[in-house]
Every structure is written in structure tokens, then in C-alpha cells.
Amino acid sequence: MQWTSILAIYALFWVMTAFVMLPFGVKTHDEAGIEKIPGQADSAPANFQPGRHALRATFIAAILTGLYVLNYQYGWITAQDLNFFPEPPGSAETSS
């Protein structure tokens, strides 16, 4: 696998991880007991820290990319393993 492919896969994992992690660990102003600014949305986060969020996404994406590359190299899970709908009985050709 080329390093550019690994970099692209890492970027995909990073973006996916960042979006999946968005709702975790964030409190609204009402939950945190902080006064809201007039006109502020009720769902606006009070304690969002983008640097910490990016660092967590970086770490998790690195682990997921590493597992993906190792699976690509060693073939732990293949497309045939993910075939949840096997062929119906009698449809496969048999030799007599």
C-alpha cells in the first residue's frame, strides 16, 4: 500500500472520528449552570475545546488507520468474511 493511500485513509478516519465525537463531553449552558447570552441557541455548547477535540480525533484516527493497514497487510477480515448472504443451497455448481 502506498503512503499516499495511507494518508488519504487517515484523513477519512480523522474526519469521521471528529464528527462522531462531537456530541460527547459537551454540556449546554443550562447543564453547566452558566448564564446564556441573549439570542444564544439553547443547544450551544458551553465548554467546547476544539484543540482537545482535534487531539482526540488524531489519536483515535491513528489507531484506526493502523488497524486498517495491518488488516490490509495480513488479511484478517476479507470481503468473503463479510458475505452475510451466502448462495442458496443447490445454486453452486458441483462436480459429479
Rank of each mutant, 00 (worst) to 15 (best):
S5W: 04
A41R: 11
E35P: 00
P23L: 05
A41F: 09
M21L: 15
Q2P: 14
W14S: 04
E93H: 10
A8T: 11
P45F: 03
A62Q: 00
L82P: 07
T28N: 04
R52H: 11
P88Y: 03
A32Q: 04
E87T: 11
R52Q: 12
V20G: 02
Y10M: 02
G33D: 00
P86C: 10
Y10P: 01
Q49C: 07
V15I: 14
L67R: 02
G25Q: 06
V69M: 01
T28R: 05
V26L: 15
P86Y: 08
F59Y: 11
P88H: 06
A11M: 07
M16F: 15
I60V: 13
F85A: 14
E35K: 04
I6R: 03
A57I: 00
T94Q: 12
A54S: 10
A79G: 05
L67W: 01
E93P: 05
S91W: 06
A79R: 14
I60A: 06
G33A: 01
D30F: 05
Q80M: 12
L70A: 12
D81C: 08
T65V: 06
P50V: 13
G39N: 01
L64D: 02
E93L: 12
G51D: 03
W76I: 11
A44C: 04
A41W: 04
I37M: 14
R52N: 08
E87A: 15
E93R: 09
V15D: 01
A8M: 07
A18Y: 09
L64C: 09
Q80E: 15
V69K: 04
H53G: 02
L7V: 14
I63M: 09
Q49V: 05
W76N: 04
P38M: 07
P89C: 05
G75A: 13
V26C: 11
Q73E: 14
G25I: 01
W3V: 10
A54T: 08
Y10E: 05
A44Y: 05
V26K: 14
G90A: 12
T94I: 09
Q49Y: 05
Y10I: 00
L64E: 01
Y10W: 15
F13W: 09
T17S: 08
T78V: 06
V69R: 02
L67Q: 01
S96V: 13
F84C: 13
Q73I: 13
D30K: 07
T58S: 15
G75L: 13
F13D: 00
R52V: 08
L82H: 08
G33M: 00
N47I: 04
A62S: 10
S95F: 14
Q80T: 14
A92R: 12
T94A: 13
G75W: 14
Q73S: 14
F85K: 14
Q73M: 13
M21D: 07
I34Y: 02
S91V: 10
F24Q: 07
F59L: 15
N47K: 07
A44Q: 12
G51R: 02
P50N: 07
D81T: 09
M16S: 10
K27Y: 14
F85S: 15
S95M: 08
S43C: 10
L82W: 08
G25T: 03
A61N: 02
I77G: 07
P38Y: 06
